[in-house]
């Protein structure tokens, strides 16, 4: 009973951690961008204010939409949260871990994508169709890179369970893997150079244009889910590269937090220093990410042979 209570408390703390900490990341990115651009920028906690405000607000629906328009973001949010809970946090491990959980994680992210694209298509707007088409198309290449990265981790650790995959010291291919996963992170979270989250021209957007017609609580769910997804990818990237398993709990937590911060600042710097790519160039970059992961996989394979 006692063990159960401890597990329950741990689960609640973990859940709260994901829910509460996730909206920090976009705030940090915006702060970095403002700092590089010599502005003061919005407060780091801006997204929290936005979420609170949106949750209070009413909803305006398009005349064309079905209930799926509102259910889509809700299911997507649940899927991303579920994927996040599968992810182990250093030596603390995951709340639930089983043989092959990494595949569930990837497919939960796919479920979120399906729901978001479906909700976007509900409105019948050509803008949102454009965004959804881009989202699902570029995801094909990103998915190839992600599966390859996971294969590399599996080969390196000899396991298909997230906890054991992410514990050992990163092998020789860590640099390649990190570069590949970072590119996937940028693509999957629709950051520069794939998409510009701060643009206001519908024709050039991916994620933002898919949610043009959302308002109120559904929009809050979307924004919160997007921030959780960003945090998820950042944690995955850090844990794939840093050997957190060998550290003590406190040191691991510190290293994880520092790593996530570095990744976040990195995203901010990329966003400040690079321009968005032309859409026809996007496949090239994603192919590069795939190849980086592929070479990481080969290095991991060769490393195990020696």
């Amino acid at each position: 009973m006692n063990a159960f209570a401890i597990a329950f408390v741990e689960f609640v703390v973990r859940l709260a951690g994901w829910l509460v900490l996730a909206p920090l990341l976009p705030g940090i990115i915006n702060k970095v961008k403002a700092w590089v651009g010599g502005r003061r920028g919005p407060p780091v906690l801006q997204l929290y204010y936005d979420l609170a405000r949106l949750w209070q607000k009413g909803v305006v629906l398009s005349t064309l939409v079905s209930p799926g328009f509102v259910a889509g973001p809700a299911v997507a949010w649940v899927a991303v949260l579920g994927a996040a809970l599968l992810l182990p946090l250093g030596p603390i491990g995951a709340s639930l871990s089983f043989h092959g959980d990494v595949l569930l994680l990837i497919y939960l992210l796919a479920l979120a994508r399906f729901c978001m694209a479906w909700a976007a298509m509900e409105t019948g707007s050509a803008f949102e169709g454009m965004g959804a088409a881009r989202e699902v198309s570029y995801a094909v290449l990103a998915e190839a890179a992600l599966i390859t990265a996971v294969l590399a981790l599996s080969v390196h650790s000899g396991s298909v369970t997230l906890v054991t995959m992410l514990t050992p010291a990163a092998g020789a291919g860590a640099v390649l893997l990190a570069a590949g996963l970072f590119t996937v992170l940028l693509a999957e979270n629709c950051r520069v150079p794939f998409d510009d989250p701060s643009t206001h021209l519908e024709l050039t957007m991916i994620h933002e244009v898919m949610i043009l017609d959302h308002s109120g609580p559904p929009l809050a769910a979307i924004l919160h889910g997007a921030s959780m997804k960003l945090l998820l990818f950042a944690v995955l990237l850090v844990e794939a590269v840093l050997p957190l398993g060998g550290l003590s709990r406190l040191a691991a937590a510190g290293a994880l937090a520092a790593g996530v911060l570095v990744v976040t600042v990195g995203v901010g710097l990329v966003e400040s220093l690079m321009a968005r790519l032309a859409f026809r160039r996007v496949p090239l970059l994603l192919t590069t990410a795939f190849l980086l992961c592929l070479f990481a996989l080969l290095v991991a394979w060769k490393g195990g042979d020696a």
Binding site: G58, V59, L61, A71, G124, S125, D213, P217, P218, A221
Partner: peptide, 20 residues
């Protein structure tokens, strides 16, 4: 989650407008 959000959306009355 779907039902909650739908209920929350309907609870606010959810006026209908043309797509942007």
């Amino acid at each position: 989650a779907g039902l909650t959000l739908w209920w929350r959306a309907r609870g606010a009355g959810a006026p209908r407008h043309l797509t942007w």
